Amino acid sequence: MTLDLNPKVRVAAATIGEDFAGWRKILGLTAAQVAERADITRDTLRKLEHGDPSVSFSAVLRVARALGILDTLTDALEPLNTDLGRARAGLLNRKRVR
């Protein structure tokens, strides 16, 4: 599947893929182990680690969980962890839960 993506999105996908591969290596896990733990194929993991943006969001989240970095990922995206997010928290229809 070929996606017509902005170059910044392509670079981000490649960087994120490299980071996932890096975590796998730092943890001393094989691709087969991570794929099994994430309940995906080794081919899907290879695509993710090589920056293929067609990999499903679900697969990305499952790999993050398998690597033990799902909380790190969700914390990085939490708007209330930023000054701007806290300043505009009223625009969010939720409270910070921690």
Score class of each variant (00 low, 15 high):
residue 64 A to K: 04
residue 62 R to Y: 07
residue 77 L to Q: 14
residue 3 L to M: 14
residue 67 L to T: 06
residue 9 V to R: 10
residue 83 D to V: 13
residue 72 T to S: 10
residue 62 R to I: 04
residue 66 A to D: 03
residue 67 L to S: 05
residue 66 A to W: 03
residue 54 S to Y: 01
residue 43 D to S: 13
residue 77 L to W: 05
residue 32 A to C: 02
residue 89 A to N: 03
residue 13 A to L: 07
residue 63 V to H: 02
residue 86 R to C: 08
residue 39 D to T: 14
residue 42 R to G: 15
residue 33 Q to C: 03
residue 9 V to Q: 13
residue 1 M to R: 11
residue 91 L to G: 15
residue 42 R to S: 11
residue 96 R to F: 07
residue 97 V to D: 10
residue 73 L to A: 14
residue 59 A to Y: 00
residue 81 N to S: 11
residue 8 K to Q: 15
residue 39 D to H: 13
residue 36 E to L: 07
residue 84 L to R: 12
residue 6 N to P: 00
residue 8 K to C: 06
residue 18 E to P: 00
residue 59 A to S: 15
residue 30 T to E: 06
residue 69 I to W: 03
residue 35 A to C: 05
residue 40 I to A: 08
residue 72 T to P: 00
residue 93 N to D: 15
residue 88 R to F: 15
residue 59 A to P: 01
residue 24 R to V: 08
residue 64 A to G: 12
residue 16 I to W: 04
residue 75 D to V: 02
residue 81 N to Y: 01
residue 97 V to H: 09
residue 76 A to F: 09
residue 45 L to H: 02
residue 38 A to F: 02
residue 61 L to Q: 07
residue 3 L to F: 05
residue 46 R to V: 06
residue 52 D to V: 06
residue 9 V to L: 09
residue 13 A to H: 02
residue 43 D to W: 04
residue 60 V to T: 09
residue 80 L to S: 05
residue 75 D to G: 08
residue 7 P to E: 15
residue 72 T to Q: 10
residue 4 D to K: 10
residue 95 K to P: 00
residue 54 S to F: 01
residue 48 L to K: 06
residue 68 G to I: 13
residue 76 A to H: 10
residue 88 R to E: 12
residue 13 A to I: 04
residue 9 V to I: 10
residue 34 V to D: 03
residue 91 L to C: 09
residue 18 E to F: 02
residue 56 S to W: 01
residue 79 P to E: 07
residue 47 K to F: 05
residue 59 A to W: 01
residue 96 R to P: 03
residue 30 T to F: 08
residue 22 G to Y: 00
residue 83 D to W: 00
residue 8 K to T: 13
residue 86 R to W: 02
residue 74 T to L: 11
residue 10 R to Y: 03
residue 43 D to Q: 14
residue 91 L to V: 10
residue 74 T to S: 08
residue 67 L to D: 01
residue 50 H to M: 09
